[in-house]
Amino acid sequence: MDEITLEDVLDLTLGAGVLATGGGGEPFVPRLMVEEALRRHGPVPVVRPGELDPEGLLLPLAVFGAPTAFAEKFFNGSEALIALRALERQLGRKGVGVMPVEVGGGSTLLPVAAAAELGLPIVDADTMRRAFPRGELTQFNLAGIPASPIVLVDPAGNTVVVQATDNVMAERLARAATTEMGMIAVGALYPVTARQADEFAIHGSLTYCVEIGRRIRAIQDGEPDAYRISWISPTAASCSPARSWTSTAGRRAAGHAARSPSRTWTTRTEHCGSTSRTRT
């Protein structure tokens, strides 16, 4: 997948709904946000972290707040720019791309809209490959990367920068600030360099998400063989042995931190293997 266009948004939304895994909110409003942003600014380029300036700043974005609040109050579209400028100032690095912290629910779609608004590419990666309930449940956390500084921006433009001593505290402080913001904010957390993302992020997450959506739609449309693993669309092209889902470094980082995540990686690697086999 080289870019995300208006035509991809439905599949991305369907996939995000699955990867929301029961949480993550209803992606209806975020979907419209992405469509509006793409209509105004054109398609968003999709890149691998390794294609970007290794020392450039990535803006990993997520929606903070409660899905029920989001149903009434949502973003005006300028929050991500405020967050990016705040991080650039603080870290002395220039933003080179946007990344979803989680693929799953609205947090999958918000970064795509933000990338369109900022004129930056989006990185085909995330930090858990599903929605998760707390900010420290990420592969970056396992790799020892601090979530701070977290920048929270609400739709009125109020900005809070959280500088915490550890990632659990960062989450707690960010939640408290979000409550005062009306339970809805754009959050930029784990401000990593492209090099760190290349090493520790889970690669291919957006492609994976879109592929899930594409298959759901194929099933709904009654396409033959839609359930079979061998059914494959052109977008899965980025899933090849040469472009593995997870870098060895990422596996190493997880391996010493916890047992259970490595099991999911195995599954993912097998999934990748089987899809790529069918292509050859």
Binding site: V29, M33, E35, E36, K73, F74, G77, A156, G157, I184
Partner: peptide, 14 residues
């Protein structure tokens, strides 16, 4: 009634 929130999705979108 909601500005500056909600400006990212205008009425009748979709």
């Amino acid at each position: 009634i909601g500005a500056p929130a909600t400006l990212s999705v205008p009425p009748l979108a979709g």
